[in-house]
Write a protein that binds this DNA or RNA. Structure first.
Length: 938
RNA sequence: GGGCGGUUAGCUCAGUUGGUUAGAGCGCGUGCCUUACAAGCACGAGGUCGCAGGUUCGAGCCCUGCACUGCCCACCA
C-alpha cells in the first residue's frame, strides 16, 4: 500500500482524514496477525482474548473503554518485543439473537413456530451473516490491533465440536445431571434462566393477609389440653383460622400446606391439623417446618411447592404434592380450577376479589415487593418446575477458588478478589439448558422406543440399548456462557493438543467489566482448571514472558483486570430507557478516535467509575491538534539537505542520536527518560490515567511550551551546523515521543511517524517500532534543577510585566541579584533564553538585594527587578506580599517545630530531614526579603 | 439482611506502600491574532481534603464513630 504522505500538513488536525486510512492499512497489511510460532520460539508471549461482544451488539462506551484499555496494553507489549496475540470474535448470544430475529419475523407477520425450528435457525444464520459483523466493523474504527485472521464465532464448527466434547466429558465424569427442579422462568423468552440472569429489585406493591379455616379433627381434645397449657381460653372458637401473608395471592391456588414453626407456641394446638384452602375447597395439612419464621408476620406461611423455591424445598422435605397452576406463558392452567386460562396478574385480581367477597381476606397493605425480572427482556420471572440439565458445580469451583486464593490467577483491583471468592464459595449448581432454538444443541438423544438417554459426541445411528433408530435429539440448547466459558482454550484448537496452546495458553490477561465476573470470568476459570489440568506452557516462553514463578498452567489467564463502568457526565448509569446513552461513534465523529481513546485512558483510574465528560474529549482533541502543529513546526524547520534526520535503524527504544549540547537539551532528554520510566511502570499496574497525563504534560508543557520555544533561536541561527543539530534533536525527540504516545493515540502518531521517515521507515508501522525504555544515564538531575531555576526566573519576569502592565510587545531591562555564584553563572549562560522567553531587553547583574525595590520578585536564589517607569498598585502589591509572607511564616513555624522535635529527627528518614532543613533555609531568606519589600512599601 | 465503594478547587476527577509546598482538565478573571498551533500563548484567582475523635515525630492517605451517597449479592412469606 502506498502511503499518502505529506509534510505540508493542514493547519488544523482532521482526524477523519487519516484514521480510516490507517485502520485499513493495519488490517490489509496483516500487521497484527500471528501465525502459529515454530518450535524453538523464545520470545516472550502476550496473549489476550477479546471478551466477545454479542453478534447483536452495537458498540457502546463500555466496549470502547474495554477495547481501548486492551489495545493500549496490547500495543505496548507488541512494541516491547512480545509475540503478541489478540484474539477477536463474537458471541452467538442465544436469547438476544433469537429475540432479535423473532422481532424481525413479527414484522413480517410470522412467528418462529410457524416457521419450524430448522428454518428458523437458518434464518438466524442469515441474519448473522448479514448483520453479525457490524460490531467488529465498528471495532475497526477504534484501531483495535487484533489478529483478524483468527476471528472466531462461538458457533463455528470447531468451537461447537469442543462444546459437545466438554458436555460429554462432564456427563461421563458425573458432573452433569438432569432433573426436575424449580428455577427462574421467563414467560416471555419461554426458557429457564439462571439466578445471574435475574435482576432483583423492590417495587411498591401490596401484601395480602389471608385466613385459612382450620378443620376440626378427632384430635381436638388433645389440642384443647395444649391450649389450656398455653394459657389460652379453654374453648376454641367454633371456626378457627390460621392467617398467612403473601405478595402473590394467585399462588394460593397451588398451595399444598401451611407451615408453622415447631417452636412457635401460638400454633402448638394446631399441630397435626388441617386447613381448608379457600376458593379451591381443598384440605391441606399444617406442617412443622423451619420455613416458617416465628418472628415474621403471623408466623404461619402458605406453602406452594410448584411456584416458590423455598416452598419447593419444604415440599420435598414433607413429600407434599406439587400443583402447578401456571403454564410456560405464566397463564393459569386447568389446575387453577375456576381461575384457569387467565394471565397471572388477572388471576391475582380475581383471587383477591373472591377472597374478599368470601370473607377470607384479612388485610391488603402497601408493601415493597421483591421482584425478579428477566435480564434480557424485563419480564417478571416466575419460579417454575421444569426438567433441566445442570452442571454440578462444587467440584469445578474448588480448584477455581484455589488458583485465585494462591494468586495463580491475580485479580486487579484486588477488592474484586474477595467478591469473586465469596460468590464461588456460595455457588449453586448451574442450570445449563435453555428452551431456545438458537445455540449449541445439547448432545443428548432420547430413544423413542426404550426411552434410553444417549449422551454422545456425534449423532448416534441407533439406540445402543434397544437398537431402535427412533432417536430424537434433546430440544434444548446450552446457556450461551457455557460455550464462552471455554474460549481461552477452544480458540487455541482444543480438544486437540496444539502448538498454539503450548505457546499461547494460559492467556496472559483478561480485561473485562465487573458485570461479567460471575457470568464469564468465573466459568472460564472453572473450565480452564478442569479441562486444561496438567497442561504446560512451553517453559522457555513462560519464563521469557515473566511467568516463571507460576506453577499452574491450567488457568485460563494469569491476570484479570476489572475495569470500571462508564457513566454519563452526571454519573448516571447509561441506559436506553433513560436515554442518556453516549454513542462512542458519535463522539469519535466529532473529536476523533485518538481523542476519545485518550479521554477514556485519562479517566480510567483503577476501581473508579468514569463519568464521561465531553469537555475532556474536547480537551484531548486539542491535545491532538497541539501535537499536529508541533509536527508542522518540526517539518518546517528541517533543513533541506537533512530530509530524514532520524536514523533508520531502530534504537533500543530510547531517543536515538540525540546530541545534548545545551541545558535545554539535557533537560528535555532527562524529562523524556523520566516520563518513559514512569509510563512503563504505570502501564504495568493498569494505571492508564497516570500514563496518559504523564505523556500529556510532557508533550504539551515541557516539550511544546518550553523546549520548542528554547529551540527556536537555534533553529533560526546562521550557523548551519547548529541548525542541523537542533533540527536533528527535535526530530529525534519527537520520534521517540510519538512511540511513547502510540498505544494511546495510534492514529495521529502513525501519521506523523510515517511522515518523518518519508516512506523509509525502519518498520511497516510505528506499532512495530520499539517502545521507549528508560536510559538511566540520560536522567540528569542537575539539568532539571537548573532548568527549574530558569523557568522560575522567566515566570517571575512575566508575572512582573503583567502586574506593571508593560505593553506586550515592549522589551524591558531587568536587574538580577543572585548571591549564589552558580546561579548567577547559570543565568548568564542562558541569558538569551531569558531575554527571549520573558521579553527582556537587557539583563544587568547587581551586587545587592533587590528586595527593597518596587516591581521585584524574590526567591531564595535570586531577586529580579523589572526596570519600568510605571508603579505598581501599592495596595494590591501589599496585599499580595502580606499573603505570601503569612504563608511563608506559617510554614517556617511548622518546619521549626518539627526540626526541633528529637523524635522527628531520630525517626524520620534522613532525606526528609535534610529536605526540610534546606527548605527552611530558603524560607527564611524569602521571609526576610518579603519583610524588606513590605517595609519599603510603607 | 450481608458485602463493597465514594465524599479533595465552581464542575469532572487525580493523589501507588503516611514524609518537606495537595495536582490536572474544564470553567472563571486579565492581557495577547508573538512568523507551529485562537482547538492557541502568557499571567492570575480559587481548596480548614464530608463531620467528630484517635494512632503517629508527621495524616488527604491508617483506626473508630457519625452523616450523606452510590453499587453488588441475598429465597424472607
Amino acid at each position: 500500500m502506498k502511503i499518502p504522505m505529506s509534510r505540508e500538513l493542514p493547519k488544523a488536525y482532521e482526524p477523519s482524514a487519516i484514521e480510516k486510512r490507517w485502520a485499513e492499512y493495519w488490517i490489509t497489511e496483516k500487521l497484527f496477525s500471528v501465525p502459529t510460532p515454530p518450535p524453538g520460539e523464545k520470545r516472550p508471549v502476550f496473549t489476550l482474548l477479546l471478551p466477545p461482544p454479542n453478534v447483536t451488539g452495537r458498540l457502546h462506551m463500555g466496549h470502547m473503554l474495554n477495547q481501548t484499555q486492551m489495545d493500549i496494553i496490547v500495543r505496548w507489549h507488541r512494541m516491547r518485543g512480545f509475540l503478541t496475540l489478540w484474539l477477536p470474535g463474537t458471541d452467538h448470544a442465544g436469547i438476544a439473537t433469537q429475540m432479535m430475529v423473532e422481532r424481525q419475523l413479527a414484522k413480517e407477520g410470522k412467528n418462529r413456530r410457524e416457521l419450524g425450528r430448522e428454518k428458523f435457525v437458518e434464518r438466524v444464520w442469515e441474519w448473522k451473516r448479514e448483520y453479525g459483523g457490524a460490531i467488529l466493523e465498528q471495532m475497526k474504527r477504534l484501531g483495535a490491533s487484533v489478529d483478524w485472521d483468527r476471528e472466531y464465532f462461538t458457533m463455528d464448527e470447531n468451537l461447537s465440536r469442543a462444546v459437545r466434547e466438554v458436555f460429554v466429558r462432564l456427563y461421563e465424569e458425573g458432573l452433569i445431571y438432569r432433573g426436575k427442579y424449580i428455577a427462574n422462568w421467563c414467560p416471555r423468552c419461554e426458557t429457564v434462566i439462571s439466578d445471574l440472569e435475574v435482576k432483583h429489585s423492590d417495587v411498591p406493591g401490596k401484601i395480602w393477609e389471608i385466613r385459612y379455616p382450620v378443620i376440626e379433627t378427632a384430635l381436638e381434645s388433645d389440642q384443647t389440653a395444649a391450649q389450656s397449657a398455653a394459657g389460652r381460653p379453654e374453648r376454641p372458637s367454633p371456626r378457627e383460622f390460621i392467617t398467612v401473608a403473601t405478595t402473590r395471592p394467585e399462588t394460593m391456588l397451588g398451595d399444598t400446606a401451611v407451615a408453622v414453626n415447631a417452636t412457635d407456641e401460638r400454633y402448638r394446638h394446631l399441630h397435626g391439623k388441617k386447613v381448608r384452602l379457600p376458593l379451591m375447597n381443598r384440605e391441606i395439612p399444617i406442617i412443622l417446618d423451619e420455613l416458617a419464621n416465628p418472628e415474621f408476620g403471623t408466623g404461619a406461611v402458605k406453602v406452594t411447592p410448584a411456584h416458590d423455591p423455598n416452598d419447593f424445598e419444604a415440599g420435598r422435605r414433607h413429600n407434599l404434592p406439587q400443583i402447578e397452576i401456571l403454564d410456560e406463558h405464566a397463564r393459569t392452567n386447568a389446575n387453577a380450577g375456576p381461575y384457569a386460562s387467565l394471565d397471572r396478574f388477572k388471576a391475582r385480581e380475581r383471587v383477591v376479589a373472591d377472597l374478599e367477597e368470601q370473607g377470607f381476606l384479612v388485610s391488603a397493605k402497601d408493601y415493597m415487593v421483591p421482584l425478579g425480572t428477566c435480564d434480557r427482556c424485563g419480564t417478571v420471572v416466575e419460579p417454575r418446575i421444569s426438567e433441566q440439565w445442570f452442571v454440578k458445580i462444587k467440584p469445578l469451583a474448588e480448584p477455581a477458588i484455589r488458583v485465585v486464593e494462591s494468586g495463580e490467577v491475580s485479580i486487579v483491583p484486588e477488592n474484586h478478589k474477595q467478591v469473586y471468592l465469596n460468590w464461588m464459595n456460595n455457588i449453586r449448581d448451574w442450570p445449563v439448558s435453555r428452551q431456545l432454538w438458537w445455540g449449541h444443541r445439547i448432545p443428548v438423544w432420547h430413544c423413542g422406543d426404550c426411552n434410553e438417554t444417549i449422551v454422545a459426541r456425534e449423532t448416534p445411528a441407533k439406540c445402543p440399548k434397544c437398537g431402535s433408530t427412533k432417536l430424537e435429539q434433546d430440544t434444548d440448547v446450552l446457556d450461551t456462557w457455557f460455550s464462552s466459558g471455554l474460549l481461552p482454550f477452544t480458540t487455541l484448537g482444543w480438544p486437540e493438543k496444539t502448538r498454539d496452546q503450548e505457546v499461547f495458553y494460559p492467556t496472559t490477561l483478561l480485561i473485562t467489566a465487573y458485570e461479567i465476573l460471575f457470568f464469564w470470568v468465573a466459568r472460564m476459570i472453572m473450565f480452564g482448571c478442569h479441562f486444561m489440568k496438567g497442561h504446560q506452557q512451553d517453559p522457555a516462553i513462560k519464563k521469557a514472558s515473566g511467568w516463571g514463578d507460576k506453577k499452574d498452567d491450567s488457568v485460563p489467564f494469569r491476570q484479570v483486570y476489572i475495569h470500571a463502568l462508564v457513566r454519563d457526565a452526571e454519573r448516571q448509569k447509561m441506559s436506553k430507557t433513560k436515554g442518556n446513552v453516549i454513542d462512542p461513534l458519535e463522539i469519535i465523529d466529532r473529536f476523533g478516535t485518538d481523542a476519545t481513546r485518550f479521554t477514556l485512558a485519562a479517566m480510567a483510574a483503577p476501581g473508579t467509575d468514569i463519568a464521561f465528560n465531553e469537555s475532556r474529549t474536547e480537551g484531548y482533541r486539542n491535545f491532538a491538534n497541539k501535537i499536529w502543529n508541533a509536527a508542522r513546526f518540526m517539518f518546517m524547520n528541517q533543513p533541506a539537505d537533512q530530509s530524514s534526520a532520524v536514523s533508520r535503524q531502530s534504537s533500543a527504544g530510547g531517543v536515538c542520536g540525540f546530541e545534548a549540547r545545551t541545558l535545554e537539551d539535557r533537560w528535555i532528554l532527562s524529562r523524556f527518560n523520566r516520563v518513559t520510566k514512569d509510563v512503563n511502570a504505570e502501564l504495568t499496574d493498569f494505571r492508564f490515567h497516570e500514563a496518559a497525563s504523564g505523556i500529556y504534560n510532557f508533550f504539551w508543557t515541557e516539550f511544546c511550551d518550553w523546549y520548542l520555544e528554547l529551540l527556536k533561536p537555534r533553529l533560526n541561527s546562521d550557523n548551519g551546523g547548529e541548525v542541523r543539530v537542533a533540527a536533528g534533536n527535535l526530530v529525534r525527540l519527537f520520534e521517540a515521543a510519538l512511540r511513547l504516545l502510540h498505544p494511546i493515540m495510534p492514529f495521529i502518531t502513525e501519521e506523523i511517524w510515517q511522515a518523518i521517515y518519508e516512506g523509509q521507515a525502519p518498520a511497516k508501522s510505528i506499532a512495530l517500532a520499539p517502545y521507549p525504555q528508560v536510559d538511566e544515564r540520560q536522567i540528569d538531575l542537575a539539568a532539571e534543577t537548573d532548568m527549574a531555576i530558569l523557568q522560575d526566573l522567566i515566570v517571575s519576569v512575566r508575572n512582573l510585566r503583567a502586574e506593571l502592565k508593560v505593553e506586550t510587545k515592549m522589551k524591558v531591562p531587568v536587574e538580577i541579584y543572585a548571591q549564589d555564584r552558580a546561579t548567577r553563572a547559570l543565568i548568564e549562560q542562558n541569558r538569551g533564553a531569558v531575554e527571549r522567553l520573558a521579553n527582556v531587553e537587557t539583563i544587568a547583574f547587581v551586587e545587592t538585594s533587590l528586595a527593597k525595590k518596587g516591581g521585584s520578585r524574590n526567591t531564595a536564589r535570586f531577586d529580579v527587578h523589572v526596570v519600568y517607569e510605571r508603579k505598581i498598585d501599592t495596595q494590591v502589591e501589599r496585599a499580595r506580599l502580606q499573603k505570601e509572607l503569612d504563608a511563608v511564616e506559617k510554614e517556617i513555624e511548622s518546619k521549626q517545630r518539627q526540626l526541633g522535635n528529637d523524635q522527628f529527627l531520630s525517626k524520620a528518614p534522613g532525606k526528609v530531614v535534610d529536605g526540610m532543613r534546606s527548605r527552611l533555609d530558603e524560607l527564611r531568606i524569602l521571609r526576610d526579603k518579603l519583610r524588606k519589600q513590605l517595609e519599603e512599601l510603607g
